[in-house]
């Protein structure tokens, strides 16, 4: 039965051609790969300790902002506590990626289970899941997350858990409709008629076919989680100092924005590049896996 969906030789080659022909996908994957490597090997790459404060070296601008004031020891300058900005940015990638990935996993599991169940079983299950989705959508994400973090305390675990419990709606919506479509296809009916058990159909027939859509939603939700973490940390109710969260760095830079605007530029740009890369990767995967002739 698997040979119905397995791509044949020329099709596979065509797919490879489509991947290579999609320059956005290549660029996004490269950028994302570099950021990931940077995050993993942060202790080896970072020139300084991201937490070490040198009070004599506060707010030294990078060379491209002010060549005269720049200090060659600090490639991207220092923040208002004299911490090396480049090192903090490199370590910040760890926080963003970690929160993005973990949130995506938590919300992905919740959303996929709910969505597949609703799509496959329909009926009352579907009614309940649809109700849950509608209810979840009615809750203001940022306010709820802020309130929970305020009471439960701002740690990485709490942020991941809160965002994970809030961002599953899109997974559920997409998985629900994708499963509904698959359910009515012939090979699922065939599997049912030869007496395959429900879990086996779900894992063997449905889930593999959901993966392209799942990857696209996952990339989008990961980007959302990164943006939300940055926003929560910016508002002081996310990851707590002295952790070098990019959102927190923007908040710290806000205080000195008037005289040293560049401090605000760098962490924001970092978030922007990471989110853009993840979104473009998702878009690229969607284009490559889309059925022929659709764009």
């Amino acid at each position: 039965m698997s040979d119905i969906t397995a791509p044949t030789g020329p099709k596979l080659r065509k797919k490879r051609g489509r991947i290579l022909g999609n320059s956005g996908l290549i660029v996004a994957a490269t950028v994302l790969g570099l950021i990931t490597l940077m995050a993993i090997f942060a202790p080896f790459i970072a020139p300084h300790d991201p937490y070490a404060q040198t009070l004599d070296d506060r707010l030294i601008p990078p060379a491209f902002i002010d060549a005269e004031m720049a200090d060659p020891r600090y490639l991207l300058g220092t923040d208002n506590l004299g911490r090396d900005y480049l090192s903090r940015l490199i370590y910040g990638a760890r926080i963003s990626l970690l929160i993005g990935l973990l949130t995506m996993l938590v919300s992905g599991v919740i959303g996929t289970v709910l969505g597949v169940a609703a799509g496959y079983f329909g009926g009352r299950v579907d009614t309940v899941v649809s109700f849950l989705i509608t209810t979840r959508l009615s809750l203001p994400v940022v306010m709820v997350a802020l309130a929970v973090v305020a009471v439960a305390g701002g740690s990485l675990q709490v942020v991941v858990l809160v965002l994970g419990l809030l961002l599953w709606d899109r997974f559920a919506v997409v998985m629900r409709s994708a499963t509904m479509q698959l359910r009515n296809l012939e090979y699922v009916a065939a599997a049912q008629s030869v007496g395959c058990s429900t879990p086996r159909i779900l894992v063997g027939e449905i889930l593999p076919n959901l993966i392209p859509a799942l990857v696209v939603v996952a990339s989008y939700e990961m980007a959302q989680a990164i943006l939300l973490e940055a926003a929560l940390s910016f508002l002081g109710l996310g990851v707590q100092p002295p952790l070098p969260s990019w959102g927190l760095m923007v908040a710290e830079a806000k205080e000195v924005m008037l005289f040293d605007p560049w401090v605000i530029l760098l962490p924001g740009l970092a978030i922007c590049v990471l989110v853009l890369a993840i979104n473009m990767l998702g878009d690229g995967i969607r284009d490559v896996t889309a059925p022929e002739g659709r764009s």
Binding site: A230, M257, L258, I271, N279
Partner: peptide
């Protein structure tokens, strides 16, 4: 649209404050 959506909105706001306000 793609680039716009990748920007953190608080950061976009701060940039506006810096350019048009300060």
């Amino acid at each position: 649209a793609v680039v716009g959506q990748a920007m953190p909105n608080f950061w976009f706001g701060l940039l506006m404050i810096f350019f048009f306000g300060l």
